[in-house]
Design a protein around this nucleic acid. Structure first.
Lengths: 107, 107
DNA sequence: GGCACATGCTAGTTTTTTCTTGCAGGTGAA
DNA sequence: TTCACCTGCAAGAAAAAACTAGCATGTGCC
């Protein structure tokens, strides 16, 4: 299910998804949840970089994070995808554009 | 109708749509085609800036351009939206991510 | 203790994108 | 000719995003 987004929300979602790393993160998490260090190894990127992308995905509401204690007592941060469905058409863009809050008045 | 996109195509489409100015351009053109100078006035942005955004929209295949002679013989460049429909879900992202061509092997 | 694993954060660099400014060309009409 | 339109392009500045490197914390196990 998908509620309708404001123009700013939609712009943020699109900007977030429009990145190869983040697309791969979504793809990896679609197979199942994972914690950041393992995910970084799986994707072959550095952990700080992955954390940056995860933060953006979470800010856009596309993934969720949950702390969990492993069997040996370590705190792991598990990420999972949030089910979303966004349909883009000229009309849906036009509708969203009406609620954009970027200040006008530029030349 | 919408054919399925490669990961790179999808990324480009999303990056292109994820911009307030370009969303407004799509919205304006959804009401009807227009030429760039008039469109710039309508949107309240400078013509060079609009041309930049139109070029990106055209490169992403979201709008088309056509030259046309006005009644008084001036060459006008008319832009129009291309009907598109892209649905975004974790699964569709995952599918597209498999065809990304960004070189891997970074740390 | 020392190693291997987990997390977080931040400062600084590199790269990309966005935007402005300014110039060029063309047309028709007064 | 001059004015009001239309187009195109490019150089440089400004802003935003991406990325690296490094240091901090904590845990359990050998």
């Amino acid at each position: 299910m998908e509620t309708s987004h404001s123009g700013d929300e939609l712009a943020r979602i699109l900007a977030t998804l429009a990145n190869p790393h983040r697309m791969r993160v979504i793809a990896a998490l679609a197979h199942g949840r994972n914690y950041v260090s393992a995910l970084a190894r799986e994707l072959g990127i550095s952990r700080p970089l992955l954390q940056l992308h995860l933060a953006k995905l979470e800010a856009a509401g596309l993934v969720t994070a949950a702390f969990e204690l492993s069997a040996d007592g370590k705190a792991m941060k598990y990420y999972d995808t949030v089910p979303f469905a966004v349909t883009l058409t000229p009309q849906s863009i036009a509708l969203a554009a009406r609620t954009l809050t970027t200040e006008e008045g530029n030349n």
